[in-house]
């Protein structure tokens, strides 16, 4: 299957309509940190440059602000294409070019799987364990604690089977 078809099977958007106007890249707030600008990624997908796209940091540095998708004159959901690229990269076990960002998403979803809802202090604690970065943002954390913003316990979803099924059918599907 061509790379573009793989992407469109996840996110039914029409990358082939891209005529390289570069509006996506002009509005992207993170573009200066990316290996390839968003419009380049669109072109690379059409040229079937699968490895280059999936190993680029661009797909992980997309922060999902959807400015590109909003401004595209051809209605391409560029942010959705980046989602599809991340999904393909993870499904085939590629090492993400931005590991810390991946670890945050992964930790977040593990917390959702565990209780159906996010408890923020627990999310931060588990993320620190995953990244072995224990000392960043200590000052911010202390301030939030003193302001009574850190609630250590929060209720969980009662219908645990529904949550379990969501993960069994997606991230844990063999």
């Amino acid at each position: 299957m061509a790379f573009i078809d793989e992407i469109e099977s996840i996110n039914s958007e029409l990358v082939a309509k891209c005529f390289q106007c570069q509006r996506c890249s002009c509005g992207c707030p993170i573009v200066d940190e990316m290996d390839y600008a968003p419009h380049q990624i669109m072109r690379m997908i059409l040229l079937d440059q699968r490895d280059k796209v999936l190993d680029s940091n661009t797909i992980w540095l997309c922060v999902s602000c959807e400015t590109c998708s909003t401004r595209c004159p051809n209605d391409i959901d560029i942010a959705g294409v980046m989602d599809a690229c991340r999904q393909i990269a993870i499904e085939e076990g590629r090492k993400p070019a931005e590991e810390r960002i991946y670890k945050f998403y992964n930790t977040f979803l593990k917390r959702v799987e565990a209780g159906g809802r996010i408890n923020e202090p627990m999310l931060v604690a588990m993320f620190k364990l995953a990244t072995k970065d224990f000392f960043s943002d200590m000052r911010l954390g202390m301030k939030m604690g003193l302001k009574g913003k850190l609630k250590l316990l929060s209720p969980k979803v009662k219908d645990r089977a529904a949550i379990k099924r969501m993960f069994a059918q997606t991230l844990h599907k063999k």
Binding site: S64, D83, R86, Q87, Y105, V157, A162, F167, T170, L171
Partner: peptide
């Protein structure tokens, strides 16, 4: 009643169906 996390950016970043299922519930 018994709402669950919407999945936020994390869910749609890693799996489209997971994001849709979390919100659809």
């Amino acid at each position: 009643d018994d709402w669950n996390c919407c999945g936020a950016t994390a869910a749609h970043s890693l799996n489209r169906d997971l994001a849709a299922a979390a919100s659809a519930r």
